[in-house]
Structure formats: C-alpha cells, structure tokens
Amino acid sequence: MSLRARLAASGGAGLVLPALLLALWGALTRFGLVPPNLLPAPLAVLRAFRDLWLSGELWEHIEVTLLRVLLGFLLGTAAGTVVGALSGYSVPWRRLLDPTFQALRSIPSFAWIPLFVLWLGIFEASKLTLIALGAFFPVYLNTMAGIQQVDRKLVEVARIHGYGGVALVRRVLLPATLPAYITGLRGGLGLAWMFVVAAEFMGASEGLGFLLIDGQQTGRPANIIAAVMLFAVFGKASDVALAALGRHFVSWQDSFQSAQERTADAADPSRLQEV
C-alpha cells in the first residue's frame, strides 16, 4: 500500500500539513532566520506552556474562557432558539420580528462593544452579552430557516393522521428542523469562540484572550502562540463534540456530507483489499 493510501486510510492526511509547518517553524528558528522576539522556537512555546501550567495560571485562564464561552453560547442559543422558532413557525411573528433582527444583524457586532461597556460595565455582563450576541444570529437564522423548510408534504401526512399543535411540533417539526438547528448551533459556537477573544480584549484580567494581550504588552510571544494554540484546540474540540452530538440525533439524515464520506470510503483501496 502506498504511503498516500495508508495516510488516507488512517485519517492521518489532515496531519501532514501541520507536521510540515512545525518542521518549517523549527527550521526557521533553529537557524536564526527569524529573530526569537518575533517568533520563538517551538521548544520555547512548550516551556511557556509548562511555566504557565506549573504556576497554576494556565488552568485559571482556560477555566475563565471556557466558562464565558459556555455561558454566552447558552444565552445566545436560548434567545436564538426562541426568536427563531417564533419567526419560523408563525408568519405574523416573522413579519414583526425578522426585519428588525435582519437590520441588527447588519451592524458589525464589535460596534456594540462601546455601548455594552457603557451600559453593562467592564466586567462579566458586557462580555457575556457580546458572546451571546455572536452566538445568537446563526442559531436564530438556522432555526427559522429550518422550520420554514420543513417539507409541507410531511406536515400534510401528519394532519391527515390527526396531528396538530404540540403533537405536530413534537413528531414532525422538531425532528425535521433538527439538522438545520445543529448547523446553527455549530455556527453559533464558532462565533462564541471568536467573540470571547474580542470580549477579553476589552479590559479582562484573566482568560486566554487576556493571555494574548498580556503576551503582546509584556513582550512574551511564546505566551501569545500558546494561547492561540489553545484557542485552536478548544475551538476544534468543542465543535467536534457538538457535531458528534448532532450526528447522534440526526443519524437518519442522508446528507451531502455523509454521502461524500461514503464515496471516499468506497474509493479507499485498503477497503477493497479487505473485501
């Protein structure tokens, strides 16, 4: 089996590029092609991780940021679900709510920061509000679109069999909306991670975003890179967890992606050999 086929079979193809980048990074710093005050060596970043961890500081930052993301995401999701469900389910509610929310959506969300700080202060309330705002729109839009796109023909089948009101929502609208809703949740979580950085830039004293700013202001680039890597790890891990949870609930969905993965599997030479 070729190396390429083996990598594809083990799902390791995605690791090739990071490995190459790491090697390049090591080489650039090892041979002094980039000054260490701009780009510290990989080992220096590892040392920064170790020092931050041993001092107990790292876990504090992680904990604070995770909590902010989680709370902001939950707030934004709750609001997005309620408003999206109302607008998707009922035309009068949509006419009342949707134009306003579409207008609000076109305001760059970071433009709210000065107002949030003015209204809610510099501490947690303004931060959580900003993160919630980020998570809100993907959830709102996907919930509304998901409900609107429910197959009218399936709703008709439900009506024939006497379903209406709560039973119709529970047996048809909810399951049919779930795939779009999970897409919205994943989008919302991604934006929550993006907005937590902005939130922690505005006068935080702890959190991974603070670690970034602090690294810049105190000239410790290794800390900046360590924080950036942690954002990548936690962002990806939380998305994978949410996607796995989603797949558990919508395993019935014959989606484009699952079809694509099946085709890739079928084209995988190692599989054909086993058969």
């Binding site: 023909k153 008709e156 089948v157 006497g162 047996r171 048809v172 399951p175 049919a176 019935w252």
Partner: peptide, 29 residues
C-alpha cells in the same frame, strides 16, 4: 381529515427520521 379515510400520495412521504415500522405506527396515534 378523518380517521375513516386513508390517503396514499404519489410520493411515499415517509418521515426520514422514523424507521419503517415507526412510520406505520405514526398512523395509529
């Protein structure tokens, strides 16, 4: 719609998230 009247459409219109049996049970609310 009334329980005494059953309907079959041009398309099967099965709920994709329910098993075949659950789809049939759907008519037995």
């Amino acid at each position: 719609p009334r329980p005494e009247v059953g309907l079959v459409f041009q398309e099967p219109r099965l709920m994709p998230w329910l098993s075949v049996r659950e789809n049939v049970e759907f008519a037995l609310a």
